[in-house]
């Protein structure tokens, strides 16, 4: 079962690279925000899979919850900042 989790994590890391491409070269600020929040979501799943690999799920669930939370609030704050700066 560990091999399955490991290969899934590696696949997700590859998807993170794709999102990182959108986050770095993507035209406009909104594409970058979307790319970065997609990276956040994938990191969350990777953290949970790491928890399964190391058999410490109850620890990694806490970490991933914090990650999701701060990702959400960060995206919201950046969106609000862009709204008031008139970039959108």
């Amino acid at each position: 079962m560990h091999e399955f989790f490991l290969s899934t994590s590696i696949l997700l890391c590859f998807l993170v690279l794709l999102c990182l491409y959108r986050g770095t070269v993507g035209p406009g600020v909104l594409n970058r925000i979307a790319g970065i929040s997609a990276i956040g979501t994938k990191t969350l799943v990777i953290l949970l899979l790491m928890g399964f690999i190391y058999d410490r799920v109850e620890m990694f669930v806490d970490i991933s919850m914090v990650y999701a939370l701060l990702n959400f609030i960060g995206t919201l704050a950046v969106a609000k900042y862009l709204e008031i700066e008139g970039e959108v």
């Binding site: 806490d62 914090v66 939370l69 701060l70 609030i73």
Partner: peptide
């Protein structure tokens, strides 16, 4: 579990910032 004063404080501040 992971965490502690600093991390909890940051999350509490994040809720207030939200």
């Amino acid at each position: 579990s992971p965490g502690g004063g600093f991390q909890g404080g940051v999350i509490l501040a994040a809720s207030l910032i939200l």
